[in-house]
């Protein structure tokens, strides 16, 4: 079905316990920092040479490269957050990420590659919640001294029909 089939997942014993723990912690921090509106701290989860992209499944399935967001280094990611803080107007809301466990795909250039499903809910200031986006993360992270740092994040959103607008990161 997918135009870019994922690599076969590694057997569990191929991934050291330390890596699994570090990536688990990273995913938990990733979602909660966005949900707590600590976007600058969320940016700090990334390496300087990083890549953050939001694409839709509709485009991926067709092999089309269009992006909703593409920051190909940490400066651009930081610019996005600054723009969100000071320049853009958007629907006032709280985010809530629910992120599934990672499936490891292998190692490349010193980073672990893994995928995880996400569901992102939005709640408006009067308390009404809605499902905002579901999809999967395709991530790569380096792990050293028990801590993981993000090398790349590709958000493949099943929810290509964006409700209202997309301001805070997925």
């Amino acid at each position: 079905m997918s135009a870019v089939p994922p690599a076969a997942p590694l057997a569990a014993f191929d991934v050291p316990r330390e890596v699994r723990d570090a990536v688990g912690d990273l995913l938990a921090a990733y979602g909660l920092l966005i949900d707590e509106d600590k976007l600058e701290d969320w940016v700090a989860l990334f390496d300087d040479a990083c890549d953050y992209k939001v694409v839709t499944r509709e485009n991926v399935e067709q092999g089309l490269p269009n992006v909703l967001i593409w920051c190909d280094n940490k400066d651009m990611l930081s610019d996005r957050v600054h723009s969100y803080r000071h320049v853009n107007e958007y629907n006032l809301h709280w985010d809530r990420h629910v992120i599934g466990p990672p499936r490891f795909l292998g190692q490349q250039d010193g980073a672990w590659r893994f995928e995880a499903s996400y569901a992102l809910f939005q709640t408006d200031l009067e308390g009404a919640s809605r499902l905002f986006s579901v999809g999967r993360y395709r991530m790569a992270a380096s792990v050293a001294s028990g801590a993981a740092r993000l090398r790349s994040v590709e958000v493949v959103a099943d929810t290509g029909l964006v409700p209202s607008l997309l301001a805070t990161p997925i």
Partner: peptide
């Protein structure tokens, strides 16, 4: 050449 699509549902 087509680069792709985006969709937005505005209430």
């Amino acid at each position: 050449k087509i680069l792709g699509y985006s969709r937005q549902l505005i209430a």
